[in-house]
Design a protein around this nucleic acid. Sequence first.
RNA 1: GGAGAGGUGGCGGAGUGGCUGAACGCACUCGCCUGCUAAGCGAGUAUGGGGUUUAUAGCUCCAUCGAGGGUUCGAAUCCCUCCCUCUCCGCCA
Length: 414
Amino acid sequence: MLDLKTVRKDPDPALAALARRKDGSQDRLAEALQLDERRREILPRSEQISAEQNAANDAIAQAKRDGADASDAIAKMKEIAAEGKALKAELAEVEERLATVMGQVPNPPDPSAADEDTEISRWGEPLPEGRDHIELAGHLIDMEAGARVAGSRFAYLKGDLVRLELAIVQFMMDKLGGQGFTPVIPPVLVRERALYGTGFLPDTEQQIYRLADDDLYLTGTSEVALASLHDGEILDEADLPLRYAGFSPCFRREAGAAGRDTVGIFRVHQFEKVEMFVFCSPEQGLEEHERILGIEESVMQDLQIPYRVVNIAVDDLGSSAAKKYDIEAWLPSQKQYRELTSCSNTTDFQARRLGIRVRGEGGSPRTAHTLNGTATALGRTIIAILENHQQPNGMVRLPEVLQKYGAPAEIGEK
RNA sequence: GGAGAGGUGGCGGAGUGGCUGAACGCACUCGCCUGCUAAGCGAGUAUGGGGUUUAUAGCUCCAUCGAGGGUUCGAAUCCCUCCCUCUCCGCCA
């Protein structure tokens, strides 16, 4: 959500930035500005009436206290109230429309966000080709049972793959703990407000599972619950940045993805993820974004997975991000880089929607900034590890760093 | 799932229709005072929005007592719905 007060003073930068998204959002902002103007036409008149009402009210109260006859004052009050009623109804309507339109305006992209997906760096030496994760560990992934029990794009992970996943999680929590992140297991069922606040609604409803009998949604990322952890709060600037590492399952309907990535667990309806989330001051945002990216790269290097970093195109940012980096891992079986993690600077977009502010020494509150990034998406990380550490004999030698966290040294069908 | 109680400012806690943006206490800030400390005295201390303004300063108006509706000339106070917290019973990982 944009700050109308700021935009109103100088609309052009926001309109120009939104135009880069090529989704017509600058038109919605323009509509919002018109509604805002209308609102500020009506509001002073409405408030004027309220003030008269308050004054008349005081007169009635005074008369009653003095034991005098208040019927004249009451009659006047009735008149004023009736006059204000229509105006207030109109105001409420304008404000409701304004809120709806503003809720649909995405975050204006940062100037440094790319026009097209742009590779900005590369690391590691990719294998030219190789077996896919099903060929390598299919005996530990039961897609048939998954489909039978829950439908397509569900799987059972078994045996050493589970040990591998849990080792990665423990490794991540250790690593992130050292970087000031507090481990969190958040709710994965949330109210609409949490999804609205993070900008997933109204925007990506077709991706979100909703419960039939309760007003709850299954979250596609713990970002939703982590952002809402401080819903409505004013944070002490001295405590910032607040960094959380959420570990949770993630649920995505993958509507519209039919026919894409149908092999194995690359694209499934349910997976686990460790997610970084940061609350910080406006000044700290840029630095935190680079820091999160640095951590994500460091994880790839720890796990010895060749990757590239991509500055994501403005028209692919999602509503909340002003800028986003993806880290794409090399998958030898596909002979291409595929998204493994991403990190977004959502600036004040989510914080304003959620009413999260920061207050410094003696200052008045300002809207906070938030950022998020994938520490590790377990399914895809497992795929990348399997494919990039495969041996000519079909076995997989797992990264040494994971072994002290309980991962086996080797996976495969002997 | 059943039965109750309750949600007021940073905290505690008054307030059952007008004099309450909100008593009183605590905490905090500034000043005074006491050769330190403590105590004491005085003043102040919410958030959002509109207008005015070069101004996020000041002034002024409006709104806010969990949220949203309603009754009323007037609601923290009465009614309805929702959310949340707590207690007891049941169930349960």
